[in-house]
Structure formats: structure tokens, C-alpha cells
């Protein structure tokens, strides 16, 4: 299992691996928003939590179709499915690798991008906490979507349509945590709900992902 994680991370870093794609998209979005909505600092501070969370969510979405598709196309997925490793473990490792290459860098860079959106400094702790707790759910849900569409050529659009509705609860509670943090209100409740969603997702989704893979490899 460690070997699979290592391999996925090496592949992500090597040429054409797509590491940094989500991060670059996130950066571009956050840089462009002030140009789009105008330089009013109060306005930017008000929309910053939502923009940061939507940006994180969309950049997660960008790399989803690569999770299983590349392994499917070169035959690796067939061999992994017949290997001693259970498909549930495969699903977990794939989601973890996706999180390390997208969710983790987003969490670490978001506070710096928050400055561009005039996010109040004291909200940063909530931003980091909500992204750290919320993005694993995005990766797990995305892996499930990728498993559902694994046999389809260019299934990216379908993944987005399948996965976006599932992302909504995470988005609501994630952005709400940051908004409350920015306004100095107690933000623990939405953060706990967010953590609950993530915990539930991580517990259930690997099994659903493995079932979807089994059906698609037939």
C-alpha cells in the first residue's frame, strides 16, 4: 500500500503528472476575483470565505478524472484489481494520494491567498482548520466519482456533474466556518459538522468506490 502511495506521488511530480495544476488554478482564481468585483475592501472581505472555498473545491475537481483513468488505460488497474491488495485499500490510497497532491497544498497556501482577498487575519486559523478537515472529504467523494466513470473516455464532465452535488454540504459548512471566524463569531459548530461529514465520508466512500470499480472492470 505504501508502494502504491509512493508510486502515485512520484507520478504526480514527474512530467505530465498534473501536480500543481489545482494549485495554479486556485491561485489564478483568487488573483482574478479582485479584478472582477472591484477593489472595495469591505466587499472583498465579505466574499473572501466563499471564494476561497469555491476555489478549493473547483481545483479539487480539476484532477479527479486522472485518479483511475490513467491506470485504466495502461492496464494497471486490471492488474491491481487481481493483486493481493483489496480494492477498498486501493480506493483509500488513491484518495489519500489525491489529497496530498491537491488538498494539502491548497490548505497550506490558502492563508496567503486570503491576503489578496482582504480576509481578516484572525479568520486564517479557521480557514486552515476548515480546509484541513474538509478537503479529505472532497478527495474521497471525488475518488468515488472517478470510480463510477472509469471506463468512459473523457469522463471529466460526467464526474463533475456527479460529484458537485455531493460537495455542497462540505462547501456550506466549510465556508460558514470561515465566515463566522472572519466576523469574530463562534465557529466551532460548523467546523464540527464539517468534521462529521468528512469522518462519515471517509468511513463509507472507500467501500462504495471499490464496488463501483468492480462493476466497471467487468
Amino acid at each position: 500500500m505504501i508502494a502504491l502511495l509512493r508510486r502515485d506521488l512520484i507520478l504526480a511530480i514527474r512530467a505530465g503528472g498534473g501536480f500543481g495544476l489545482g494549485l495554479a488554478f486556485f491561485l489564478i482564481l483568487v488573483v482574478l476575483v479582485p479584478f472582477g468585483v472591484g477593489p472595495s475592501q469591505a466587499m472583498l472581505a465579505a466574499i473572501a470565505p466563499g471564494i476561497l472555498w469555491i476555489g478549493a473545491l473547483l481545483s479539487c475537481l480539476l484532477s479527479l478524472d486522472r485518479i483511475f483513468q490513467l491506470d485504466y488505460e495502461d492496464g494497471t488497474l486490471d492488474i491491481l484489481a487481481t493483486s493481493p491488495m483489496p480494492l477498498e485499500a486501493l480506493a483509500t490510497i488513491k484518495a489519500l494520494a489525491h489529497w496530498i497532491t491537491t488538498g494539502l497544498p491548497l490548505t497550506l497556501t490558502a492563508p496567503f491567498l486570503g491576503i489578496l482577498l482582504n480576509l481578516p487575519w484572525e479568520a486564517n486559523i479557521w480557514l486552515i482548520a476548515s480546509l484541513a478537515l474538509g478537503t479529505p472529504a472532497l478527495s474521497a467523494l471525488g475518488t468515488f466519482g472517478a470510480a463510477l466513470t472509469v471506463g468512459l473516455k473523457r469522463g471529466g464532465l460526467l464526474i463533475s456533474l456527479l460529484v458537485l452535488p455531493l460537495y455542497v454540504p462540505t462547501l456550506i459548512f466549510g465556508a460558514e466556518t470561515v465566515r463566522r471566524g472572519a466576523e469574530g463569531l463562534p465557529a466551532t459548530t460548523p467546523l464540527m459538522l464539517l468534521a462529521g461529514i468528512t469522518a462519515g465520508t471517509l468511513a463509507i466512500l472507500p467501500f462504495a468506490t471499490a464496488a463501483a470499480l468492480r462493476a466497471n472492470l467487468r
Partner: peptide
């Protein structure tokens, strides 16, 4: 039919 090799490795 497919080799199951990673091109970048």
C-alpha cells in the same frame, strides 16, 4: 493485452 507499465517510471 495491456502491459500495465507506467510510462514515466
Amino acid at each position: 493485452h495491456l502491459d500495465g507499465l507506467k510510462a514515466q517510471l
